[in-house]
Simulated assay, not measured.
Amino acid sequence: MNVADSAINLLKSLITTPSFSKEEDSAAQLIAAFFTERDIPFTCKLHNTWVRNRHWQEGKPVLLLNSHIDTVKPATGWQRDPFHPGIEQADILYGLGSNDAGGPLVSLIAAFLHFYDRSDLPFNLILAATAEEEISGAQGIASVIPELGAIDCAIVGEPTQMRMAIAEKGLMVIDAEAKGVSGHAAREEGVNALYIALDDIARIRKMDLERVSPLLGKVKMTVTQIEAGKQHNVVPDSCRFVIDVRTNECYRNEEVYEILQLQLQSELKPRSFRLNSSGISLEHPLVQSGLQLGLLYFGSPTLSDQALMPFPSLKIGPGDSARSHTADEYIRLSEIREGIEMYIRLIEGFCNG
């Protein structure tokens, strides 16, 4: 069996194995068994598994290949069993996590196997199949990075149609609360917290931060949840709402938070500042290798484990982000085969760069 067929069979097994964030144990065991069958030593921590190339040499630069084993829960509207790896039209593989990010994951594993026995690599290679990407959890890649030693750069496997995402928007979620004074709705009493919140939401909709990224565009702020009131005849004294902020590389999350604090009446509490915008220089050897192959580059509006990596990283992989988290998620077998070939060529170009 060739390496592409082995990768596709592994993906089929992963699809049959529910692997929601924080519940990836069985999927991690599948990854470990895959390497055990090939006599490749591996290391596990929590639900994360990583391997190193056979001829590891201290002092060489280190390239990390990373993708995730967790999935979201099935969206409503599936017309198929999300845990059955059904193939239709000889090329389309359906199943939860097939596209995000099973296809990129097994393609990176296949590329790692291609280079595993090479003794002439000018760099060391680590492949990490990690957990909790869908929730940016603390027990995923963030818990693994300290165990890996110094990393010089990474390829992050996500469905990008094999385009190079050289920049990625950050994420900051803010819990906001407008505070008023309760009163009877029939009389001119109280201060309506809901109206205060609506005024703030109107300000957010009109807010246009001046620094615009050529790759990622503007900072995007969206109110996604709101809650107020317990009875129809009582003026609410509290209104809570949630702001989803997608930052470009021109702003740190803390800076956008400070701007919002100055503009809004509501009390704001960020859940985290850690998921800042990330990216890699066009001049980086990984990107240059891709450009030599004719790969396109872009700025990605979606978040990945790149945000948790304190070193340059390139997001790229087979599949299409538009299929992620949707009913009847799928990836084409041809995309996986082409993805494996392109990963190998990308790494070879990096090797020779």
Rank of each mutant, 00 (worst) to 15 (best):
Y94T: 07
E132R: 08
I87E: 05
G149Y: 08
H84I: 10
G170S: 00
A90F: 14
K73P: 07
A142N: 10
V173W: 03
I126Q: 01
N66D: 15
L108K: 05
G183E: 00
L64W: 04
A142D: 14
R163T: 07
N124H: 05
A129E: 05
D117G: 13
G149K: 07
A154K: 04
N99V: 06
A138F: 08
F112L: 11
K169P: 00
D117Q: 15
A150M: 13
W78R: 10
G180C: 09
S98H: 10
T71E: 05
L148E: 06
L113S: 05
D100K: 07
G103A: 06
F123R: 06
H84C: 13
A165I: 02
G170D: 02
V181A: 14
D70P: 01
I145M: 08
D120S: 13
K73V: 13
A185L: 13
I174T: 02
V181R: 14
P104C: 12
V156A: 08
H184W: 12
C153E: 07
A150Q: 14
I174C: 00
P85V: 08
L127G: 02
D175N: 13
D152N: 15
L93W: 08
E132N: 10
A154R: 03
L96I: 07
G137V: 01
A142C: 11
